[in-house]
Amino acid sequence: MLSDLSGWAITAVAVLGVLSVAAGVAVFVVDSMARATFALLASFLAVAGVLLALDLVYLAVVTALMMTIEMAIMAVFMIMFMMNPAGLMPMTMVHNAKGSAAVGAGVFVLLAVGIWTIDWPTTNPVRPDDSTRQLGEAIMGSHMLVMLVIGIGLFTTILAGTVLATSRGRYDRLGPGLDAEHPDDPVPGGLRR
């Protein structure tokens, strides 16, 4: 069956697909951490463009917006933690590069063999009028359990992030057994003082 994508859409998918992989490779090739972050952003935006060409307007916009903000935050962390944020000198910080390359290439070949040998059932798909409405109705109806689990997962992440970000927890205040007579606080006051 012929694809119902227009010629322009197929061209866009092909160009953006190549761009996404090229930007993905650039992440691990460039010398600067800031450049690596923006290469990753380019890869995400290319994938968002492909999703847009595939009629997934809402998911494409969410991907583009979320990843732009995420990479902006990531760039800040990169510059905070990395020894070579500006790319002023050559930099490779890798271990077991050959083994990793073999695993990456092996997984790609395995997936590609599967992709090109399977007889895909692409005949006569029935398209919804609006993919966003379809997703919204699924979230609020048949697939609500997925959203419930996602909500709990995100809430757990907030709690865990706060716990990890706290510089002094209750074990620092009250000892490993939580049985100190007085909490070890830098500033007096508070509970059990």
């Binding site: 993905g24 691990f28 933690f81 590069a97 990456g104």
Partner: peptide, 20 residues
């Protein structure tokens, strides 16, 4: 293309030394 992204990402996750 998706398989290519997964392969490149796996290479990066296994080979890079810095956590970020």
């Amino acid at each position: 293309v998706a398989a290519g992204l997964i392969g490149v990402g796996l290479f990066g996750a296994l080979s890079q030394q810095t956590i970020v």
